[in-house]
């Protein structure tokens, strides 16, 4: 009985040793050479695999960034500049700082502002709804309200407001990965610069119909009157297809456009004080009067 026990141990130990050696040599023979920096880079990355950088997950980002000649095509929107600085340090590249961005929903067609013209019964998915028809209101550009963007967000930064029927972005949680911008079939969500202390001006409308049509469909619609364009002293606003658009790289946050907009479709976010419309309008009038006086004089 004793000898059986010893024999078993010897055989098993021998077998183990032989297989271990075999595995060792196989591993040596078929070893995959990986850039040691890949692992290091991957460690710095957030690891959410959101695809916001345009690569198939964080590992792919690490592999491609190690192989790339510079980091011009690589930017992790989730980690932002701190992570990119770390990655650049590991790889020995230089990166320029980018302004932090945030997702912005460009529709203010709330349930009260935009009356429903029909009822949708199909699958609760914006994509399916957008394929079928223009939407359950008279505005064919507005939010469909089925929450494809909420489902696409991996960071829990988006939620549907049951009061307005529109998605709301949690600015703290939003990493500007851009997943929601691709999920929205109406292209309503845009990544914009967060702005100093989060302050920014946004045209919260995408309606490209002519004024009367747009206004009939939604009380908050941009009617393309162009008052904001005429008022803006920084050339930051363009009017295209009956719709105003604010270029956030040029906007100086003077809030004059917000004061003059008759449709209320330009909104300033995160400003410490509420807008004093009359004061701003008086300022614009004074400036115009001064300009007119100068013109008179030159004549």
């Amino acid at each position: 009985m004793n000898s059986t026990l010893i024999l078993t141990i010897v055989i098993l130990a021998g077998l183990g040793l032989i297989l271990a050696l075999l595995l060792y040599f196989v591993a040596q023979k078929f070893k995959v050479e990986e850039d040691p920096r890949v692992g290091k880079v991957e460690e710095c990355l957030p690891g959410a695999n959101c695809g916001g950088c345009g690569f198939a997950g964080c590992h792919d980002f690490a592999v491609t960034s190690c192989a790339a000649p510079d980091l011009s095509r690589h930017y992790c929107p989730v980690g932002g500049d701190p992570v990119m600085q770390q990655v650049a340090a590991i790889l020995g590249y230089k990166v320029e700082a980018k302004a932090p961005q945030v997702a912005v929903v460009r529709c203010n067609g709330t349930c009260t502002a935009r009356p429903r013209t029909n009822t949708y019964q199909g699958v609760q998915s914006c994509k399916a709804k957008a394929w079928l028809y223009a939407g359950d209101t008279a505005c064919q550009f507005g939010c469909l309200g089925c929450g494809d963007c909420v489902a696409a967000c991996k960071f829990g930064a988006l939620s549907m407001d049951p009061q307005t029927g529109l998605p709301v972005v949690d600015q703290e949680k939003c990493t500007a990965c851009g997943a929601c911008t691709g999920a929205c079939p109406k292209n309503l969500i845009e990544l914009r610069a967060k702005g100093p202390r989060g302050m920014r001006m946004v045209v919260v409308c995408r309606n490209q119909d002519k004024g009367p049509v747009a206004k009939k469909a939604c009380a908050n619609a941009c009617i393309g009157c162009g008052l904001c364009v005429k008022t803006c002293t920084h050339d930051a606003i363009v009017l295209e297809n009956n719709l105003a658009y604010i270029d956030f790289t040029k906007c100086k946050l003077c809030r004059e456009c917000e004061a003059v907009c008759p449709a209320g479709s330009i909104i300033g976010v995160n400003f410490p004080k509420p807008l004093d419309k009359e004061a701003v309008k008086a300022r614009i009038a004074a400036r115009k009067a001064a300009a007119a006086a100068v013109k008179e004089e030159s004549k």
Binding site: T117, L132, Y133, A134, G135, A138, Q140, D209
Partner: peptide, 10 residues
Amino acid sequence: APRADLAGRM
């Protein structure tokens, strides 16, 4: 001019 069709698209 554009006009809405069956599906509400212009």
